Amino acid sequence: MNPEAFNLFGIPIRWYGILISCGMILGILLASYTCKVKNISYDMMMDIILIALPSAIVGARLYYVLFNLDYYGKYPAEIINIRQGGLAIHGGVLFALLAGFLYARKKKIKFLSYADAAAPSIILAQAVGRWGNFFNQEAHGGEVSYEFIKRFPEFIQKGMNINGIYYHPTFLYESLWNLLVSFILIMLIKRVKKDGTIFFTYVGLYSIGRFFIEGLRTDSLMLGPIRVAQLVSITGVVISLLYIYFAYFRKKNIL
Rank of each mutant, 00 (worst) to 15 (best):
A99S: 13
G27Q: 01
I11Y: 10
Y71R: 10
I239M: 09
E154S: 15
L8A: 15
M1H: 13
M187F: 11
S240E: 00
Y243L: 06
G224S: 05
Y72K: 10
I18T: 12
I109V: 15
A119C: 08
H140K: 04
I226M: 09
V203C: 13
M44Y: 04
K36R: 14
I254N: 06
F67D: 08
S21F: 12
Y202S: 12
L29W: 06
K251E: 11
I162T: 12
Y64C: 11
E214N: 06
G142W: 00
W15M: 14
Y42F: 15
G59Y: 01
T235P: 11
V192S: 07
G86K: 01
I156M: 11
L97R: 02
G59C: 09
G132Y: 01
L112D: 09
N68R: 14
Y114K: 14
F249Q: 06
I208E: 02
I51H: 03
E78M: 09
P54K: 04
C22N: 09
Y16K: 13
A229M: 08
I234Q: 03
R61C: 07
L205Q: 06
K252T: 15
L66M: 12
E147N: 15
N68A: 09
I213H: 04
I239L: 13
K38A: 04
F200V: 11
Y33W: 07
A118C: 10
L185T: 04
P169A: 05
K158P: 14
F183D: 05
K108F: 04
L30Q: 06
I89R: 00
D195M: 06
I80W: 03
N161C: 14
G224H: 02
N161M: 15
P3K: 13
N39D: 07
I234L: 15
F199V: 10
L102Y: 00
G196D: 07
I40R: 03
N133A: 05
M187K: 15
F152E: 13
L255R: 00
L255V: 14
G27L: 01
G17A: 14
F249N: 09
A31N: 09
P54G: 09
A125E: 03
A118W: 01
L112T: 11
S32M: 06
Y245R: 11
F246S: 11
S121Q: 05
N81W: 00
P169W: 01
T34S: 08
L223W: 03
K110F: 07
T197D: 13
L179F: 14
T218W: 01
L216T: 07
K110Y: 05
A119W: 02
M222A: 06
L124V: 12
L98N: 05
I239P: 07
L221D: 05
A88P: 06
Y146T: 13
L112C: 11
I184F: 05
